[in-house]
Design a protein around this nucleic acid. Structure first.
Lengths: 127, 127
DNA sequence: ATAAAGTATAAAGTTCACTTTAAGTCAAGG
DNA sequence: CCTTGACTTAAAGTGAACTTTATACTTTAT
């Protein structure tokens, strides 16, 4: 069982953020010791890594909240949870496509700078 | 020359956002008519599309601000602007890599759901 | 034994990127 | 003429996701 300090070292997530995630219901079943201090086990770490992946791919807190709520409901929500993940997968794929699309525009801009610089070189203008 | 209404229709960007971008210095040389109303030309549209691409790829307002400031400085800032674009390109590529990395985790989760569902099927548990 | 470090809570504060509001100006249509 | 609709500004408000603060209790190290 790990203290919150250990978990911040392992995950790189600040302690206030871990408390905030827990308060918002993103981390189910985090235990406490006899004095109310948090104790994290391997399953908690898995949840933290999973929540981090969802956040890093743009899922809002409220949707993760709902997902965890469904998880707590038990097996009857498996198909709904799977659907949430399928939809999120589609959103990530769209984000990737959008990034590639806009990356093209940046590359076009960079190509223009190359032309500009070679022109400046040919005309002996110093920059 | 286009009114702000026309530009919102073309770009899908809300008029207050266009004003906000201009106020923040993200859109250089937007003209006005004799009564102070904005008039956008083709070059303004290009800037709007460019700024939109930068925003969509996560460049903060403050960095775009700086880029436009350098642009206004003239040719002496070309190499610095090109460097900004090169760095931004690297950031976009990193974002794409991160998204793929986290997409893997979501796919892993989805695979678990597939296993779970087939187990439920085999044991005749209805969900 | 006691100072320092760690943890807890609730509540307020911060940052970013808009968005809305309030109050006013101006041109066109009935 | 006067109302309607589009435009202007400055300033306040919003929402999301944390982050900081204040206060108090506990654990650890010297």
């Amino acid at each position: 069982m790990l203290t919150i300090k250990k978990v911040t070292e392992i995950t790189g997530i600040a302690a206030p953020t871990l408390r905030y995630y827990e308060k918002e219901g993103l981390l189910p079943h985090v235990k406490r010791n006899e004095n109310g201090k948090r104790l994290y086990d391997e399953e908690d770490l898995s949840w933290i890594h999973f929540v981090t992946a969802l956040r890093a791919t743009g899922m809002p807190i409220a949707r993760i909240q709902k997902y965890v709520y469904l998880y707590k409901e038990g097996d009857s929500t498996i198909s709904e949870r799977k659907l949430m993940m399928l939809n999120h997968k589609k959103e990530i794929e769209r984000s990737i496509r959008d990034l590639y699309f806009n990356l093209d525009k940046i590359n076009y801009k960079l190509a223009l700078y190359d032309v500009l610089e070679s022109q400046i070189e040919r005309t002996s203008i110093k920059i």
